[in-house]
């Protein structure tokens, strides 16, 4: 009897324990510990004028990283969707095109793709500005993975949904837009979230061609300050903040769209 009573008191869906606090606590501890050991934290100490200006210098890469990742996603998402639709088409040539694209792009390391777009393409007289080279390389690299995610999501929608749409003679674009994609996207939101985070993190690689984003800024600072541990720790925190904001956004979307799923 007692155990049953206790059971009834437990909420049906316990709220997830807050994780951010703990993560920040651990990182903070690392900071303090390493600070005691090496004592190089003055380079990023916001209470000192030099530390402040260094921090400002590092933070100035934020906007570039955000723009870079955002533009890459804006291009990659519709692109990947189109590619996925090719893969789901009944046309054998479109299917092969899809397979080929995904296999080839997935196999190229992103770093190589970035170098190829920025240093390779000019040999073909295709010159893309620094920022857009980064965007294009990130978008292409991302699109292959996103396409697979979209394909999986669309295939997870029961066949009866397409048949019901056909039976009321909805055309293909309307069927996708109103019936299939809303259900597919809801299912793949967690996987999409992963991919969004992946793009933000991989944008660090664009520093190799000199794009003034977060990682590049940190590297430039290290050249003058020689404090790798402190500066890279701050850099890691910068990405952490970006990713936490992004993942909170995805979970907000999940809640908004997923609340209906529970009633299905």
């Amino acid at each position: 009897m007692r155990s049953r009573a206790r059971f009834a008191e437990a909420p049906a869906h316990p709220p997830p324990p807050p994780q951010y606090g703990r993560v920040l606590l651990v990182l903070g501890l690392c900071l303090v510990l390493t600070a005691c050991g090496s004592g190089g934290w003055y380079v990023v100490d916001p209470t000192l004028p030099n530390g402040r200006s260094n921090l400002w210098f590092m933070l100035s890469g934020f906007w570039y990283t955000i723009k870079l990742s955002f533009m890459a996603l804006i291009i990659a998402i519709p692109g990947a969707l189109l590619i996925a639709l090719c893969g789901l088409s009944s046309n054998r040539w479109l299917q092969r095109l899809y397979r080929g694209y995904v296999e080839v792009i997935r196999a190229i390391p992103l770093l190589v793709l970035i170098l190829w777009v920025y240093y390779g393409l000019p040999d073909l007289d295709i010159r893309i500005a620094l920022f857009w080279s980064g965007v294009v390389a990130l978008a292409i690299g991302e699109s292959a993975f996103l396409a697979e995610v979209f394909r999986a999501g669309i295939q997870s929608v029961p066949r009866g949904q397409i048949e019901a749409a056909k039976a009321i003679s909805l055309n293909y674009p309307d069927t996708m837009r109103y019936v299939i994609l809303p259900q597919a996207i809801r299912r793949i939101l967690p996987a999409l979230g992963n991919q969004f985070i992946y793009v933000v993190k991989m944008s660090a690689l664009v520093s190799i061609i000199g794009a003034p984003e977060l990682t590049r800024k940190a590297n430039e600072l290290i050249v003058t300050e020689y404090r790798a541990l402190e500066i890279y720790t701050v850099l890691a925190l910068e990405y952490l903040v970006l990713v936490l904001i992004l993942s909170a956004g995805v979970r907000w979307l999940e809640r908004r769209m997923g609340s209906d799923e529970r009633k299905l």
Binding site: G160, E163, A164, A165, A167, I168, N171, V179, Q183
Partner: peptide
């Protein structure tokens, strides 16, 4: 497509749009 406009269909599993 044209013919389906004049032909309604009801399925065993209903196939309503759940969202």
């Amino acid at each position: 497509d044209k013919v389906r406009r004049d032909v309604g269909m009801v399925f065993q599993q209903f196939n309503l749009f759940p969202h």
